[in-house]
Design a binder for these strands. Structure first.
Lengths: 202, 202
DNA sequence: TACCTATTTGAATCCTGGTTCAACAAGTCA
DNA sequence: TGACTTGTTGAACCAGGATTCAAATAGGTA
């Protein structure tokens, strides 16, 4: 028998297992048994913790987003210079490669969001939070006279997040000539135009 | 009994039915019976034409993309002025609303492309074709002295297609403050920066 | 008209996946 | 230690989806 665990621990395991299973089989194509197997449990045990599987899937997506967002915040938290901060932020929004689990999960959601209000709201919220994140950086830089913004800070921020999203999809789909490095460069090229800063990575 | 049809006609019907069914139930969550019902047939009849359902799904996606691309080409074909052409092209790449069937189908594919090479290739090909489309417009405009390009035409084109994609997802997910009009305006705002043209719709 | 073939049905069958639940195991606490 | 709680299993059950195929039927054709 699988090791017995506390309710809280097991739920965390299941959320993780669901994340992995969804990446393998799709957010909507995933089956209870696949999640159970991924968690090293039987389907009964999964149902014991989540009588309604949809709740587990939503929690898994939610957790995936939080993790994604927290990781970004963490990566940029120590950087003082707005220009370097901007560069790092852009990098942190892209998948590391076609198999990047965090972004894969987000991409899964894109289609489902059209059918499922909860998923739509989750994605929308994430988008808005990322926009705010960029806006703070841009306005700090502008206030310090480092950036000369060519557009409203909200417009630039939305554009940056949109570009991350779109190139994320390209990378996941294994575009032959757009990988993580090319995507960073494409986005930076826009950012230079929008901030009037040369944005050279240190 | 459903009206008897020729092989070619029936296959077209089925492709259309599969498109509708996938939009309702997801590219990977869709079931044979749902497609059959959508086509007004029994599951046996569907299997008679497509012994392997995956072939039907791929053809349906392919057809959806072709239609999407052809519609864009058609909308801009009569326009001579590069600026107006650019504006119209941008509009034609966005969904008309959250229920736009063409774009919904494309969004379905985003997640699956990470798992399925065929889907990845389809999306990649579409992306590249759209980039070429923009590139032609930009270079024509530049040659005529109407546009003053601030970046390489390929970079601008990629950025434009990426923005369309990303805002398409936002619109499908029913973002509260980004609808088709706002998305057009956001993209145009970038296009102004990149082309040096004010891009006023006539 | 009568035949021939391609298309479609409907029922039978198999299979997969979800759901339930009694029994059991592993802790916990008095 | 023994009773109690909680987590887990495994088997039984059920629903529904895929697959198969003989039979029915519509259209085309000679």
């Amino acid at each position: 028998m699988a090791q017995r665990k506390s309710r809280a621990d097991r739920r965390m395991d299941l959320i993780d297992a669901a994340r992995r299973a969804m990446i393998q089989h799709g957010a909507e194509g995933v089956h209870l048994n696949q999640i159970a197997e991924e968690a090293g449990l039987t389907s009964g045990a999964v149902l014991y913790h989540y009588p309604d599987l949809r709740d587990l899937l939503i929690e898994a997506h939610h957790a995936g987003m939080e993790r994604f967002y927290e990781q970004r915040i963490k990566k940029i938290s120590g950087i003082a210079d707005p220009a370097q901060k901007l560069i790092t932020t852009i990098r942190s929004g892209l998948p590391e490669g076609p198999d990047d689990a965090g972004v894969r999960l987000l991409c899964e959601l894109g289609g489902a969001a059209g059918r499922n209000r909860v998923y739509g709201t989750l994605l929308t919220t994430l988008f808005d939070r990322q926009v705010s994140m960029y806006q703070t950086i841009l306005e700090t830089g502008a206030a310090q006279g480092i950036f000369t913004l060519a557009q409203a800070s909200e417009t630039i921020s939305r554009t940056l997040v949109a570009l991350e999203d779109a190139y994320g999809y390209r990378i996941i789909a294994r575009h032959h000539s757009i990988g993580p490095n090319e995507a960073v460069e494409l986005i930076l090229d826009y950012a230079r135009l929008a901030t009037g800063h040369e944005l050279r990575p240190e």
